[in-house]
Simulated assay, not measured.
Amino acid sequence: MGGNPMDLRRRHGLAHEEAIHDPEAMVCLESVARLLDDAADEFARPDLGLRLGTSQNPGMLGLLAVVIQGSDSVGSALADISRYLFVHSPSYQIVVETPLPAPNMGWVTVRFDVDVDAQVPFRQLVDGCLSSMLTLARSLTGIPITPHSVSLPHTPAASRRTYETVFGAPVVFEQPRAAVHLAPDLLATPLKPARPEIRRAAIAYIAERYPPSTITTATRVRNALGGTIGATRGTKTEIADLLQLHPRTLQRRLSSEGVTFESIREDVYRTATWRLLTLSTLPLSQVAHTLGFSEQSAMNRSVRRWFDTTPAGVRTTAASRSACDTR
């Protein structure tokens, strides 16, 4: 697009020697998110994240691609991605949710979560990740995967038609989470494993080089809360039931990890509230409903406690900062 990539990298602290020359080096994801947002504004390309996603190839996943290519079905490949994604980025997480029992809701939801501070601009990052997720899935499986629909937690950066062309499916914006919704029978689609002995060697190498990625109870609670925002009240009893644990057992396990259910819930809902207020144009009453608050006044009290201002104040401040950033 005629820009200077190195200038952008320097501007965001990503021009050091290791980041440039070592393909396995980890860099700060928040810096990457800011770089993408900055580049989209500077070059007037609101579809930058989507364009980046469609240009990815399996090689960018390194070892993870080797593991996935050895999977025997689409469902197994998703399980591998969920299990080993930390090798690519410990701040990314893919969660496969079971189909909902309600009529016309029998699809599998593949939820994408990114762990960055709530105030980091992540519209381009999320667009790029979901776009690349589908691009890579189609490339690795050789299947023309068509989602039932796609959910995004923000207003569209580019035109709605651009999103639907990239994803090949209807896109619903201003949702509590980013997700791709797939037909359940797709998970059983067999793949042709590429040399299983290479897959085994890649998994052994990951086990040797990287610390074990153990899913803690706190992570399971965070995932459950994130996946049920708006569908439940997010109480300890509800989450314990989802995790098939007694509430006391859940609390005991969290205590052993040095956290409380209340602190995790507070963080999940604070982040979701900030993002819906700043990245959507939903009326405040609808934001409260989407997030599962009993009424708007309950959301107002929580926002005042979290951000020392009103929901309208959060939006006004975010809009002012965005205007300054684009000048």
Rank of each mutant, 00 (worst) to 15 (best):
T271V: 08
L64S: 03
P193D: 03
L130W: 02
R321K: 05
H88C: 07
T54I: 10
S55F: 01
A77P: 02
V110M: 10
A240Y: 13
H181L: 09
L279A: 14
T135S: 11
M6C: 03
K192R: 10
V110Q: 11
T273K: 00
S302V: 00
E97Y: 08
T232P: 04
S263V: 08
A231V: 12
V116K: 07
R220K: 12
Q124G: 03
R11K: 09
F112A: 08
R11G: 09
I198W: 08
V95W: 09
H246P: 07
G234S: 13
A77E: 06
I203W: 02
A137E: 07
F86V: 04
N223Y: 14
E97N: 12
L225A: 09
G75R: 12
V74T: 06
V66P: 03
L85S: 13
A39Q: 08
T290W: 00
L152T: 02
S213H: 15
S89T: 12
V110R: 04
S131F: 04
V95F: 12
L134F: 09
L277D: 00
P99D: 10
R222I: 05
L291R: 00
L279M: 12
L64V: 15
Q286W: 02
A240Q: 06
L78T: 05
Q251V: 14
R301H: 05
H148S: 06
V120K: 04
A169P: 06
T217G: 07
R138L: 04
C324D: 13
A40R: 07
C324L: 14
Q124F: 01
L279S: 14
S213L: 09
V67P: 07
E208L: 15
G2Y: 06
T155G: 02
A179D: 09
T237R: 15
S82Q: 15
S151L: 14
S213A: 11
E257R: 08
R253V: 13
S76I: 11
A77S: 14
T235W: 07
L48M: 03
G2H: 05
H246N: 14
A65Y: 01
D37M: 02
F167M: 01
I68W: 01
H289W: 02
L130A: 12
F173S: 02
Q296R: 14
